[in-house]
């Protein structure tokens, strides 16, 4: 019988959303439109329209060693062209942001190729070849894993994910990369905090009901409490017990 991955335990909406995001067969709902140029501007790695700088000659132009793995694994478009490795980093507010660092890494590992994610408590960075990155970034910004107010692209100075929201519902950002203007969130700086030549609109912040329905974070005050999901608690306790027991290296007599 073919193996069907379960992706994660739990009966709550949070658990369901986590499974949806991880499952590569589930098509993430597209919520907003961002142009390719907008994504390039937010990333800030190259000027829009300029050629991709390269780290090595295209694979077709160079002799590859005789390697069985290289025969099995097909290179991504970026790797084929010899692009530089560049990154996008997200900070997700604990107040019901639609994704969070661990979740992002799981999701990206299931959905994308040729990536190197880095998971931290308040931010998640993903590195890959520049041309692949732009595609992935576009998907990450346009779909339901992004909320303009609660998620933000921050290459540096990411502080804010665990703070109270501002009066207008925006997550705190020391560099104020995005501002809420007439109900629409606009990036005025790129992800590292350099001012942009023009504002980049990423759409309206989602309303409370949507945010709660799409959250992947347990939060006893702002959303679903972890303890309310009995199946999740049971699973985590099982893992905890097994890890602890294994720490004592039990031996069968």
């Amino acid at each position: 019988m073919a193996y069907t991955p379960q992706y994660g335990p739990g009966t709550s909406i949070v658990a369901e959303n986590r499974r949806k995001q991880m499952n590569p067969n589930y098509k993430l709902e597209k919520v907003r439109d961002v142009t390719d140029e907008d994504v390039v501007l937010i990333l800030g790695h190259r000027a829009p329209g300029s050629a991709y700088p390269t780290a090595h000659p295209p694979l077709a132009e160079q002799q590859e060693p005789d390697c069985p793995i290289r025969k099995i694994v097909k290179p991504t478009e970026g790797a084929k062209a010899g692009d530089r490795v560049r990154y996008i980093q997200f900070a997700d507010s604990m107040f019901n942001a639609p994704s969070q660092p661990y979740q992002r890494t799981y999701m990206e590992m299931y959905r994308f190729r040729g990536i190197d994610p880095g998971t931290l408590s308040g931010r998640q960075i993903v590195e890959c070849r520049e041309r692949d990155l732009e595609q992935y970034a576009k998907m990450l910004i346009e779909t339901e894993v992004f909320d303009p107010a609660l998620v933000s692209c921050r290459g540096a100075t990411v502080h804010g994910h665990s703070l109270r929201l501002a009066e207008d519902g925006m997550m705190f950002d020391m560099l104020q990369r995005c501002v809420l203007k007439d109900g629409v969130v606009k990036y005025v700086k790129d992800q590292i905090g350099e001012p942009l030549d023009r504002e980049v609109s990423v759409g309206k912040p989602m309303d409370d009901a949507w945010v709660k329905a799409h959250s992947t974070i347990f939060h006893s005050l702002a959303g679903v409490a972890f303890r309310d999901d009995k199946e999740y608690v049971e699973y985590i306790q099982r893992i905890h017990a097994l890890r602890t027991k294994y720490g004592f290296m039990p031996k069968e007599e």
Binding site: A156, M174, L175
Partner: peptide, 22 residues
Amino acid sequence: GPSIPAVVPYGPARGSPNPNSN
């Protein structure tokens, strides 16, 4: 409250001004 510095304190944009309406 959390600090809002006048110039970017670290990262690639370190030292550049930090216009901030707050």
